[in-house]
Amino acid sequence: MDIGERRKERLDRGIKVRTDGIYALMSLRELSYLTVPRLVFILGILILPLVMPSMYWQRVISIVCIYALLALSFDFLAHFAGLVSLGGAFFIGTGGYIAAILNTSFGLPTIVTIPISTLLGAAICTLLLLPCLPLRGVYFAIVTLMYPLVFARIIEALNIFGGTDGIMGVVSFPNRWVEQYFMLTMVLLFLFGMRRLVNLDIGLVFRAVKDNDQAVRASGMSITHYKAIAVFIASAMGCLGGACLVHIYMWSGISQFALDFSIIPIAATVIGGAGTLVGPILGCFILVPISELLRAFGTLRIVFYSLILVAFIVIRSEGIMVYGQRKYHQFERWVKV
């Protein structure tokens, strides 16, 4: 058939009775239509540690979770609050160093260091980023890219916090099961929490700040205030990841300000589907294990995911998740014109 004679028709499948955002579930089939994908996702994630073949791959799961938290934070900031932050490493480093200091200098146990470093780290990150919040687009991206670098160099130059050697002797999680299930639970909690948040009234305000900040100002709200809240939430996720990373590796060093933590979450978001919140996490579950497989090749893995990122940007991919959602909710067929 010639292209001029046919067109693609897309039809919704699934729930019959619905209007935007409100569904009337009429049958068990419709109920499962909505819940099965979520249940599969949650159960799949919870089973993962049990089916992993070795200790090494179980450890990889924890690392995936850290990247997943970062990717979630990037996606939230970029696509729901309009702040493209290239400084994921800054959150990881801040959270990590705070946890390490609390543990080694004050002898606090894991159960205390992780919440404290999450909140304190988020507060510190927000305070430091506060002057940059009025910046738009590119400028905010550049400035956040510079933050982790400047902190790494300052730690190196002043030789504080262990200097280039880092802080060693941080306690680990009680055992690997606690470690993995804690990380996975956190990812799930934050994922569903964020999904809820962006649809709450305050979530709409974040999206409004992204869409049209002038109208938000004209509505009598300070955009800086809401941007700061968004940065606090996002950096809390990053700092949590950082604190866990330190406890997993039992070590904190300037490599936590390294570029890996800034670039992988972005790549995962682009691959998984920007603005979906689930997509970035799926992206991490795909990208990080592949990158681990390539660990033997050293820095080649950075080349690998940089090129994947470029490829996805160049073909302007919508991302796995957006594609999947469309295929799930609609079916397509060719019709004659």
Binding site: L86, A141, I263, A267, F297, S306, L307, L309, V310
Partner: peptide, 22 residues
């Protein structure tokens, strides 16, 4: 799309540099 330009060109630079390192 300024942000995509930054990310894309940065990723290319990263690929080149880390490729050399490898």
């Amino acid at each position: 799309m300024a942000i995509s330009e930054i990310i894309a060109s940065y990723a290319i630079g990263l690929a080149i540099l880390e490729g050399f390192r490898w």
